[in-house]
Design a binder for these strands. Structure first.
Lengths: 347, 347
DNA sequence: CGGTGATGATAATTCGGATTATCAACATCG
DNA sequence: CGATGTTGATAATCCGAATTATCATCACCG
């Protein structure tokens, strides 16, 4: 396949008149217990290398047990499609930047077979082991896979909070943020809130629900829950339009946009007739020209921190590793948009 | 690092009571000249594998000379940043889709050191050789690197036409497209065109210039060239506003948008006073609510074809490879927008 | 019964680089 | 001068899987 049969350390050794072992040691600038290499020899080897196009074979390095400076990126769905990019884009950007800083390459596991709509990390030919460690992204992580990673002691970090024990992650503190949103609603006079969610069982979704429940109790707010797993959006809109709640909270901007359309058909305008807030990132989105009330989430930072943590897991020895803070929650901030407005009169 | 010291073929062999060689052969479903493995033994090995969490080590496979199903993706600039994504997004999407189809993982060379503003493919620790082949993306490809890849016989495909001999590529036929745009302008009565370009020396830029020159000669059009390497945009706008040309063509939408602003300051409205067309993709962009006249480029298809070609280069043997069409040009289409209008009267 | 295949499977080697175990040559010291 | 270091560098191994070279065993045939 290659006409020039690939330059190896053996070849360099031949040119420099030394042994392959010497070349290896010069390259890695290493000295073992009883091995010393004088500057003269080092120089000879270096010159031989410069003459050629030698590049160490990463496969061989890896086989010999060294780090490869390759980090895996596993997403449970395709990451680069137009739709996914809205969500994954900032995360991937953060990852790319941090990887560049660390001098690491990124291996995307695009080959993972899809079962039940999500990709499987483990399969007969996974290239997982080629990487020094792996970042996991996506809503639908598989508990069994996470557990297996922990058991095998493979370095990895999940983006997003997880419930499984000993799983390292960097997540966003939705619980606090959700409380903040409710607090704003209350400050504007609202006391009755409907939360429309997807009925997912991810930790983040659970945190939003918990945050809502907690805030409701603390601030004496009455909440109604609607899951799109049970009712579709137009039904939900009907329920809301006929009810007495004054604020609608949705799980993300897409649901907010769709729901606003449905509500409009019931004659409900936002925020005149009904306030609206979103428990997700609202950057770059607006509703009828109005900035949406919701979150501003530092996604790039999130990803960068995840990668940095992963790197620590990889380079630290066991003792140091044990001392690492494996679980980090990052604070987002509330965007005080125009869709959550002062409660007018009692209705 | 791993508590369970990683399952290897040797371990499987021990469990199944056979030799490591046998395990390897069962796994790859291979039979050599004088080696046969009865179904019974195969079954025994298979069961042993199922009992464990065995996954073949990709590094070892690679070292032994097998394909790895890993394709490299090299971009001359960061690919996942917010700005780059506008350009790289569709390409990456096409690549991801095709990689998924082929069952390949993707290695992004994010670690490549930056020199003179662009990344270098070859460096002391490049993981290039870990991949079966590589896709190159970006405006600023390095001729020397391309040539070296060809010399080393390393499988790769460039996205975008290249001039270097024997470089496999998939490119967009800007020459024809440019001619089409000029044709439209002529059909609308125009005879005098100013082309504002970046003065870059890429093959694609050269094709646009050549297409313009060819069309100008064929259709008897007078063309004026302005390079932003020589004059800045406001100067260019002044020249155009004071000149007699009736159509302005820019190299891409960004330049078009910026130039339109400058022209407005000279009291020139588009398309009332001056028509405008773009020799680049105009999807998702508009000028004052008007669809821009320009190209619609099948970027995803471009990338997918590049990856498919790469795969062919990898799996074909030398004979079959020699027969492959290494260079493909893809046709885009013209978007007949509203910024290129009928010439009113002589001015 | 000895020879000849066909069968089934294994030991040995390879890939490229990292590390360990060993050794040769020369210097120093008592 | 012989014992003991010290220096410099190499041969030998290992990593995990793929392939080649070899070898048992048993069957069948003359």
């Amino acid at each position: 396949m290659e006409k020039p049969p690939k330059v190896t350390q053996r070849e360099i050794a031949r040119i420099a008149g030394v042994s392959q072992a010497t070349v290896s040691m010069v390259l890695n600038d290493r000295e073992y217990s009883n091995v010393r290499i004088p500057a003269a020899t080092r120089e000879r080897v270096r010159r031989a290398i410069e003459q050629t196009t030698y590049v160490p074979d990463p496969a061989a390095r890896r086989l010999a047990g060294l780090d490869n400076k390759i980090l895996g990126v596993f997403t449970y769905e395709a990451a680069l499609s137009r739709e996914s990019l809205d969500f994954y884009g900032p995360l991937l950007h953060g990852i790319e930047q941090e990887a560049e800083r660390l001098g690491c390459d990124l291996l995307f596991f695009t080959s993972s077979p899809v079962e039940d709509g999500t990709r499987k990390l483990f399969h007969k030919q996974t290239r997982l082991r080629l990487t020094d460690g792996c970042i996991l992204l996506g809503q639908q992580m598989d508990s069994a896979e996470l557990t297996r990673l922990v058991e095998e002691g493979f370095p990895f970090v999940a983006v997003g909070r997880r419930d499984e024990p000993d799983v390292p992650y960097v997540g966003i503190d939705y619980l606090t943020l959700t409380g903040d949103i409710v607090e704003q609603a209350v400050a504007l006079g609202h006391r009755r809130i409907t939360y429309v969610h997807y009925g997912r069982s991810t930790p983040a979704a659970a945190d939003r629900l918990a945050g809502l429940a907690l805030a409701a109790e603390t601030m004496q707010v009455e909440t109604t829950l609607l899951s799109t797993a049970d009712v579709d959006l137009s039904e939900a809109a009907a329920v809301i339009a006929n009810g007495t709640d004054t604020v609608v909270i949705t799980e993300d901007v897409f649901m907010a946009e769709a729901l606003a359309v449905e509500l409009a058909e019931h004659g409900k305008a936002i925020p005149e007739d009904l306030s609206l807030a979103v428990l997700g990132d609202v950057e770059g989105h607006s509703l009828g020209g109005r900035v949406m009330t919701g979150f501003q989430l530092p996604r790039e930072q999130l990803a960068a921190e995840a990668l940095a943590l992963l790197q620590e897991l990889i380079v630290r020895d066991d003792k140091a590793r044990a001392k690492l803070e494996l679980r980090t929650m990052i604070e987002g901030s509330v965007v005080a948009g125009a869709t959550l407005a002062q409660l007018k009169e009692s209705r």
